[in-house]
Design a protein around this nucleic acid. Structure first.
Length: 217
DNA sequence: GCGACAG
DNA sequence: ATCTTGTCGC
């Protein structure tokens, strides 16, 4: 059995350094979406840089690296931080905000992978997950497509649903929950209910295995 | 003690 | 996340 006390201490330090209630950027124009897929001990990570004004992908990159750490709920960063940092380093058009596939503040210690990535690289991040790790939804009514997520008496994130998918959004670092929701909703409303750049990053990670020859794309 | 548990 | 056939619904 592995001892996660060190990883836990890292997350607690990360939470102290993180900023959840301020926006480092006032008018973001470039938003990057990062995602990772796995095959045996290899991780294929991808990034799609999206122009909010034009509603288009302006850059895409992918890379393949080895991973050793197993996936453990609550300690996702141990497994996925390296693939994420590796592919982010390939980006030429540095984004104003980075969307990470996973939780940010909505985490047992308020420091999910999105928060860890943001503090580590000192970039604004948003956490976007498909399942809750902690907390429970509180919807005002059945019609509302945006609900708050409560844990231990505080709002830790929000759910946003379209007719295509349901996402759990939380602040990562340097992007408030309100701004995070605003960005996510503006994208899905523009692309038929799909978080377009994240979908593209996801497709890249799953379709580049066939013609992978070392990673770069 | 038991169940739940981001990707 | 990944491994995977047939099957249900529009």
């Amino acid at each position: 059995m592995i001892d996660y006390s060190v990883a836990k201490a890292i997350q607690e330090e990360t939470r102290k350094k993180a900023v959840f209630n301020q926006d480092f950027v006032s008018n973001p124009k470039l938003v990057a979406a990062l995602d990772v897929s796995y095959k045996k001990s290899k991780a294929l990570s991808a990034v799609a840089v999206y122009n909010l004004e034009r509603g288009e992908i302006v850059e895409a990159k992918a890379t393949l690296i080895d991973v050793k750490a197993p996936y453990v709920p609550g300690y996702f960063f141990l497994r996925e931080i390296n693939p994420l940092v590796a592919v982010y380093g390939l980006v030429e058009n540095k984004p104003d905000v980075v969307m990470i596939n996973g939780h940010g503040y909505s985490h047992p210690r308020r420091a999910g992978i999105a928060t860890y990535f943001g503090v580590l690289l000192s970039v604004p991040t948003i956490g976007v997950a498909r399942k809750l790790l902690v907390g429970e939804e509180q919807c005002r009514n059945e019609r509302d497509d945006t609900c708050i997520v409560i844990d231990k008496g505080e709002i830790i994130g929000m759910s946003v649903r379209s007719h295509i998918e349901k996402l759990y959004v939380s602040s990562g670092h340097g992007v408030s929950l309100e701004t995070s929701i605003s960005i996510v909703k503006s994208i899905i409303e523009r692309h038929g209910g799909s978080l377009y750049p994240m979908k593209i990053a996801d497709l890249i990670t799953k379709r580049c295995w066939a013609n992978e020859q070392g990673g770069k794309h």
